[in-house]
Amino acid sequence: MNQLDKELLTMIQKDFPIVERPYKYIANELQLTEKEVINRIKNLKEEGIIRRLGGVFDSRKLGYYSTLCAIKVPKEDLDEVATIINKIPGVTHNYLRNHQYNMWFTLIGPSEEYIQETLEEIKRKSGIEDLMNLPSKNFFKVEVKFNLMEV
């Protein structure tokens, strides 16, 4: 990734232009051609740096519920439990972390009942009772944009 790619990424992470020719608009800002912008974005996708280009939605405003969960999984069962959890479409993130609650995942669903039922299902299928449901009570910040120029 060179300086120009970083500049491009910094710009299109948040201020992607909602206009008829967005890549041309970006090109004008960065003094590139429309084709160059399209090709650079294509490369950044192929390199796996850009996961997706599109809308990131506020699940609550769409009437969805979300939560963070932590589960205590015995080491020998990690693969099996990960498979059970990752198969659920509403599980968007899942990480192993250095704690006795070692598997942390986020779950999004259309209702609180869906969340409850899904967590019960995870407990039943994994045989693990020790699962914490940690829905947010207050949120103070959600911001995923980074200024890549500082990297």
């Binding site: 992470q13 909602i18 740096i49 809308g55 405003k61 769409l62 980074f146 990297v151």
Partner: peptide, 24 residues
Amino acid sequence: IQYYIDEGIIRRFGAVIRHRKTGF
């Protein structure tokens, strides 16, 4: 799209990146 952004339904529109690959 502009309306969804203004209303906060779209939190942001643009590139979703893998930070593990960017230096952070």
